[in-house]
């Protein structure tokens, strides 16, 4: 059973979102997502300054056997990317909700936060997937 921290919100496409006090959010991929991809060998984050809309493809995570797009869980401007992933993509495997964050976003519309899945709802979608 993969970890699904309570305080985060999730997209059905397996991204997680963490809201900071300043209103900006961190985005990464869930424990379930990193586990099904296997050892990551490359992460391509969006570029700082990119304006992205909910549902946009805005990056790629790549393992030896698969590559998967990262979709934007919320609209906004990319204000930082995790540069450590360039040399150490394995951080996403080791610590998907911490050191393995992928980019930071300044949301254009904070109301979108409420439309994301809660931890419980995300857990339910994972169970449904397994059926």
């Amino acid at each position: 059973m993969s970890q699904i921290p309570e305080e985060l919100r999730y997209a059905t496409s397996h991204e997680w979102v963490r809201m900071e006090d300043d209103g900006n959010v961190y985005v990464g991929i869930s424990d379930h997502a990193q586990d099904s991809l296997g050892d990551l060998v490359f992460v391509e984050p969006p570029e700082v300054g990119d304006e992205i809309s909910t549902g946009d493809e805005c990056g790629v995570v790549e393992s030896v056997k698969a590559a998967s797009d990262i979709y934007a869980p919320m609209s906004g401007e990319v204000i930082a990317v995790n540069e450590n992933l360039e040399d150490s993509p394995e951080l996403v495997n080791q610590d998907p909700y911490g050191d393995g964050w992928i980019y930071q976003l300044k949301p254009a519309n904070k109301a979108e936060w409420d439309e994301l899945l809660s931890a419980d709802d995300y857990a339910t979608t994972l169970e449904d997937d397994e059926d």
């Binding site: 050892d39 060998v41 490359f42 393992s63 030896v64 993509p89």
Partner: peptide, 8 residues
């Protein structure tokens, strides 16, 4: 062969 290391 270690394909993960090779890809990195």
């Amino acid at each position: 062969l270690d394909e993960v290391q090779a890809a990195k």
